[in-house]
Amino acid sequence: MSDLRGVIVSHAAVAQALVSAVTAITGIEGVLTAVSNEGCGTEALGQRLREAVGGGPAVLFVDLPGGSCFTSSARYAKQGGADIAVVTGVNLAMLLDFVFHRDIAPAEAARRAVDAGAKAIRVTAS
């Protein structure tokens, strides 16, 4: 099994809820870690990321393409020393795809997750 991990970085409890949802649907545990920016300045959030990512490799799934979750994740990916890719706009569909496709490099897993996530966003007939 791949050691590629997913770390979800979000405002409030979004990340934890997504981890719970993935486990409820797939039964897979221990692949995704939730990180919240609740009560965090830049320094504390960086520390939470370090603890969650460890030595990598990892894909960081961030809620928004900007803001403290994103800036801390991008900074960590650049400076953290581990093999890390960052995806923004996390949704449940991309995480469900990710947990079953981890025998690839972080950058490739990130591209795959973006494809899977984007395909889930649509307007359905009413």
Binding site: H11, G41, T42, E43, L64, G66, G67, S68, T71
Partner: peptide
Amino acid sequence: DDRLIHGQVV
């Protein structure tokens, strides 16, 4: 704000 530009601000 030690997060500088982020959601609460924007």
